[in-house]
Design a protein around this nucleic acid. Structure first.
Lengths: 251, 251
DNA sequence: TCCGAAATGTTGTCAGACAACAGTTTTGAG
DNA sequence: CTCAAAACTGTTGTCTGACAACATTTCGGA
């Protein structure tokens, strides 16, 4: 039983089928509620066992693309893509994120995070400030010890988002932060310490914290804007096109 | 017709196991990279067959919680929750979205969408404007015919996001829009037409479009802000706490 | 000691079967 | 003939067993 030379055996068979199924659904422009082929039919069409088909459908279910009803069949969900949002397209698109893509993601983060800082300044409690102070202190220690503080950097931004008391914003910030963990590494690397990138980032953090602590929403937003623009520059991105604040009219 | 309110819906063993596994991982605070028990062990622990366990793990994989390596085992992913972002927690949390939750989601949407409108005004092309005009025209027709235009309403907001030429923002807007399809129904219902909600919404849409068309970023943002605040009011939410615009110093 | 091959363990895939459920058709009582 | 119950068919959900592909460990020989 030699499988057709379609697959190069580079990865899991179920991954391949998942991708093909997803593509097939979107290409066919299947409207919500349409029933898709039975598992048996799909088995024959793709030439795989039912386990693989079920695995693929299971993932689409988790993605929110399809729903299944026992005894009835599988159907396209209300909105394809509803239920969850993923930044990087595809299933295993990990290694190379293009600079344009990264820039786009960063801009989305910019929109949310600046607004979050603004709102955090208005709603933060003493507890929120304590949490931020803690993380800030840990980063200060790391700065003195020239150590790595990527995790704390992430935690600081999440702490800001948490101070909005909007759990959705907090979760989104945590989600976005996770995507940027790798990107923050250069700032806290030994080279980052030497070149002053770490100190620079920390100074920006302090400025955001102080604005939020004072309850000055406008200042908090501007400090967050400045920090994100600097962070983008440290990553080699071009934040000019974001032009949300100062460079607005010049275009 | 449609019998969804099956309250006794205890079935779907795999759903139960998925939930328990997810809960177990988060509760144990398993750090990234930790290996979780083998499928065989999990089978015995939960008293189910391997198929169910595999189904559950498959979903967690789709969620980005865990990764698997053939011949090695399953491991907690780099960041739990990385890979995809879902607004409503849980797998089958569809029917009742609490008002607070809804309000939080709406605020997140507010942050992204107002920024998107601002940027759309700066970057829109003639083609973008054509697309928006098309959708706007369809909504105008629906208004005259007292018809439903929820889909077009959604499409209009996506068209704005598309005009930013930032694919991540566009995709996020499409994602968020899908979550609100149901919520927009009252506006375009027969009652919505009668009470003037539809006409009101349409007027706000036109105002946003004109600002974007003129390339006036500030006006576009303010128009989007006004529209979202009105939309929230139409949904019975309280947009006061967002306080992003009027209470702001930079105006 | 060092290296390679065998042994063991784990996930991935296959195959078949039955259970639970939904929809349709047939049957039987009135 | 009417209509409801029963039988039938088709689909997804779950179980079981087996083997393949891959990773890690163990162990024996040079």
């Amino acid at each position: 039983m030699n499988p057709p030379p379609t697959a190069k055996r580079v990865s899991r068979l179920s991954d391949e089928i998942t991708l093909q199924l997803e593509r097939w659904i979107t290409e066919q422009q299947l409207s919500s509620g349409t029933q898709l082929p039975t598992e048996k039919v799909l088995c024959e069409r793709f030439g795989v066992s039912r386990a693989v088909i079920r695995e693929a459908i299971s993932r689409l279910k988790a993605d929110g693309c399809v729903t299944t009803r026992q005894g009835s069949g599988a159907f396209v969900a209300a909105r394809p893509g509803q239920g969850s949002f993923r930044l990087v397209r595809g299933l295993e698109h990990s290694p190379p994120i293009l600079s344009d893509e990264m820039s786009d993601i960063f801009e989305l983060r910019y929109l949310v995070e600046t607004g979050a800082a603004e709102r955090a300044a208005l709603r933060r409690t003493a507890k929120d400030l304590d949490r931020m102070r803690d993380v800030l202190g840990r980063m200060q220690d790391a700065l003195a010890a020239q150590a790595d503080a990527v995790g704390d950097d992430d935690a600081f931004h999440v702490a800001i988002a948490a101070a909005t008391h909007n759990s959705q914003i907090e979760r989104f910030q945590a989600f976005m932060g996770g995507q940027f963990s790798d990107s923050r590494a250069p700032t806290w690397s030994s080279d980052g310490h030497r070149s002053g990138r770490a100190r620079e980032a920390q100074a920006e953090h302090v400025r955001i914290f102080e604005a939020i602590s004072r309850g000055n929403a406008g200042a908090a937003r501007r400090a967050a804007e400045a920090h994100l623009v600097s962070a983008a520059r440290r990553l080699g991105l071009d934040p000019l096109r974001w032009g949300g604040d100062k460079t607005e009219s010049t275009r």
